[in-house]
């Protein structure tokens, strides 16, 4: 999104000409293979007890993230994309993270056992009221 007008070779979509595409096919097949292996690993890792269920979830998500990154970087060519696309995808990632993190944070910050209530226990009459 810069406003310089530096001429670039028109007609090349991804910075590589038609000649290079044949070389990429190997990469695509390789990535496809990795993804299939990754799927197998995900299924296998789910059967292993890593000690805590949360750790299992973390490992499963990690594998999924790696797989998703491979798809995004190589199949969707994000490894060599234009600045404009990086800019608005960056904003998107920021906002979607904000949505997830802030929403979760606000749920974990509900005042269940507030300091105030602990220091000022309600009168018995009010307690029945509050328990509704």
């Amino acid at each position: 999104m810069s406003h310089d007008h530096s001429p670039k070779t028109a007609g090349s979509h991804d910075g590589h000409g038609d000649h290079d595409v044949s070389k990429h096919i190997r990469t695509y097949l390789l990535i496809g293979g990795f993804l299939l292996i990754g799927t197998a690993i995900t299924v296998w890792a789910a059967t292993i007890d890593f000690g805590s269920h949360n750790l299992n979830i973390g490992i499963g998500l990690l594998i999924a993230t790696v797989k998703a990154s491979l798809v995004a970087l190589f199949f969707m060519h994000l490894i060599s994309e234009k600045t404009a696309i990086y800019m608005f995808l960056g904003a998107t990632v920021f906002f979607v993270t904000g949505l997830m993190v802030l929403t979760l944070f606000s749920f974990s910050d509900l005042p269940k056992d507030s300091e105030f209530l602990r220091l000022n226990p309600p009168a018995p009459a009010a307690q029945t009221e509050a328990s509704h």
Binding site: D4, S6, K8, A84
Partner: peptide, 9 residues
């Protein structure tokens, strides 16, 4: 064809 400054169609 892509635009010069963005490099995108």
């Amino acid at each position: 064809t892509p635009r010069e400054d963005t490099g995108l169609y």
